[in-house]
Amino acid sequence: MKKKTSSSSRFKQEMSEMIDILELNDVQKRFMKSRWLDQLTWLSSRAKYSQTWYYRLRMMTIVGGVIIPALVSLNINDSKLRESLVWLTFGLSQAVAISAAVEEFFHYGEGWQFLHSIHQYVILAQNPIYLNRSYFAFIEQEKVLSI
């Protein structure tokens, strides 16, 4: 049975293979794998982590915010059922308040969007610079111009 690999490890493997076929010396390839690819993988995993928590907390807030008014508006004559409903409503309202507070404190939504935008910038803007070798030529040119 084939082992299931995560998308981040698959992405890292694919990018590593792309780096290997570039016309770069071993030091430059090692630099790209140890710094650029490592940072890119970290950004991707942190963005996914923040996105997951943002969606969980927001969904709890939204769904709970819709259910609570419905529970409050119920008019039940059975005292045991009414008491259970009161405690259910109280518990759900606390869960909604806590999820909103945690999301506000940790800013998972803003963190996810920020990390995702940096990740996309690195892939779309910086990757071509690295991969077409002009980055290393640019560094050499900067050294010459600074003299």
Rank of each mutant, 00 (worst) to 15 (best):
E17P: 00
Y121M: 13
I19M: 11
T89R: 06
H119Q: 10
V66P: 14
T52Y: 09
F105L: 06
S117R: 12
G64V: 08
V27I: 12
A97H: 01
V72M: 08
Y108T: 07
Y135Q: 13
F31E: 12
I76Q: 13
D26T: 13
L22N: 13
Q141F: 09
D20M: 12
D20K: 02
N25C: 01
M15L: 13
F138A: 10
L92P: 00
V63T: 14
T52P: 06
F90G: 01
F114V: 15
E140G: 00
K48Q: 01
K12E: 11
G64F: 01
V122H: 11
V102E: 00
A97Y: 02
I147E: 12
V86R: 09
V72A: 09
A100E: 12
K48C: 00
R56F: 06
I21A: 14
W42G: 09
S16C: 08
H116I: 04
F106Y: 06
F90V: 09
L43F: 13
V122T: 08
M32G: 07
N25G: 06
M32A: 12
A125Y: 02
I19T: 02
T52R: 07
A97L: 01
I123F: 03
R35I: 14
Y54F: 01
F114H: 15
R30F: 10
H107P: 08
E83K: 12
R35K: 09
I21D: 15
D38R: 04
M32D: 02
I76T: 05
E104D: 13
F90P: 01
E110L: 06
S84L: 14
A101L: 07
T41G: 01
R82Y: 09
E110G: 08
S6L: 03
T5S: 07
Q141R: 15
A95E: 01
I67Q: 02
R133S: 11
T5R: 13
G65Q: 05
N77A: 08
K29T: 12
F31V: 14
H107S: 05
E110H: 10
E142A: 10
S50H: 06
I67A: 08
L40C: 01
R58S: 04
A101E: 03
Q51D: 03
S146G: 07
I147F: 12
L88G: 03
S9P: 03
V102G: 03
R133A: 07
S8R: 04
L145M: 01
L131F: 11
I129W: 00
R46V: 14
S44F: 11
Y108M: 00
K33N: 03
S99G: 13
L43M: 14
K3L: 08
T41E: 09
S84D: 12
F31H: 07
S44I: 09
V66Q: 09
K4T: 14
L24R: 10
R46Q: 15
E23D: 13
A95H: 04
L85P: 04
I118W: 13
W42H: 15
